[in-house]
């Protein structure tokens, strides 16, 4: 239910920029990039027009997830500094428009993927949208501090969809990429939640630092970094990639682990002074971009 802070009917129709903002364009950048890498790393040549269509469908599907997330969480967004200027909490758009927009994007992207690319990619895209909206947003986010652990799977689907779009199959390498993003999500989001925890607490979101405390969260960041490191490096010894990816993954993951250790041993409680947490959060984004970039270069060189 919307809170009283969320106007039911705004005075003017929403601008097109507000609809664009509903799709969370910044989040979409990483989704599109990892999906493109999944598609390019596949050992099959895909027609560029069909490849473009597949990536477009994944981007639009991610936009649908973002719009439906904002539709459902308008009351929550209104209570957080980071999100209170979004179109719904700011009163620039009515909730029904956001719902219709999100559903239209979601259905359109899945149908187009099924008709233009293949059924497997369309099914995984549909599962990823439903997982993000129903499992993460509706079910987990407000109920458990494990919300982003399980919900992280939603963000891990893009490379799998990209690969499935190119090949029509699911194989070990895209599954490892799925696992990598799945295990990367907790350290990434918990690093963020450490230095914005008062925001989450004010909104009543049971993020780990709010529920279990700062030190437990710091330990969990390190604990999840270990299997993430294994998933990141595994494609090399398994013979799925060459040395370009292997060396890049080893070096970047080592630096990720060092930053995670710095977070784990830190005793700082003032959010404004949490430098290791900010450093890990920023690096984790770069980490994924460079790792996937190295994967594509490696696969192209091998090909």
């Amino acid at each position: 239910m919307p809170s009283p802070a969320v106007p039911i009917t705004p005075a003017l129709p929403a601008e097109w920029r507000d609809f664009l903002a509903l799709t969370k364009p910044r989040v979409m950048t990483l989704v599109v990039f990892t999906a493109l890498c999944g598609l390019l790393a596949a050992p099959v040549h895909i027609n560029p027009i069909l490849g473009f269509t597949a990536i477009l469908c994944i981007a639009v599907g991610a936009g649908a997830s973002g719009a439906l997330n904002m539709w459902y969480e308008a009351d929550l967004d209104a209570r957080m500094k980071r999100t209170k200027n979004r179109p719904l909490p700011a009163g620039r758009m009515d909730r029904q428009s956001a719902l219709h927009f999100g559903v239209a994007l979601g259905v359109g992207s899945v149908v187009l993927m099924g008709l233009a690319i293949n059924l497997l990619a369309a099914v995984i895209l549909a599962v990823s949208i439903l997982f993000y909206v129903l499992v993460y947003t509706v079910w987990l986010k407000r109920r458990t501090p494990q919300n982003i652990v399980i919900g992280g799977a939603a963000g891990a689907f893009p490379p799998l969809i990209g690969w499935a779009a190119a090949t029509g199959r699911i194989e070990l390498l895209p599954l490892l990429l799925f696992l990598l993003i799945f295990l990367w999500t907790p350290p990434h989001f918990w690093a963020l939640s450490l230095f914005v925890r008062t925001d989450y607490a004010a909104a009543g979101v049971p993020m780990l630092p709010v529920v279990a405390g700062i030190q437990t969260t710091r330990r969990q960041v390190l604990i999840y970094t270990l299997p993430m490191a294994a998933a990141a490096v595994a494609p090399w010894p398994l013979g799925l990639t060459g040395a370009i990816y292997g060396v890049t993954a080893s070096l970047l993951t080592a630096w990720f682990a060092i930053l995670a250790v710095r977070v784990a041993v830190s005793r700082e409680t003032d959010q404004a002074l949490m430098k290791p947490e900010r450093a890990l959060f920023k690096f984790s984004i770069l980490y994924l971009f460079v790792l996937f970039g190295a994967l594509v270069i490696d696969r192209l060189v091998l090909a």
């Binding site: 027609n47 027009i49 069909l50 269509t53 477009l56 233009a116």
Partner: peptide, 12 residues
Amino acid sequence: LFFAIAWARMMH
């Protein structure tokens, strides 16, 4: 886009 997809699939 739909025209291009139809063309690409026919070429495929």
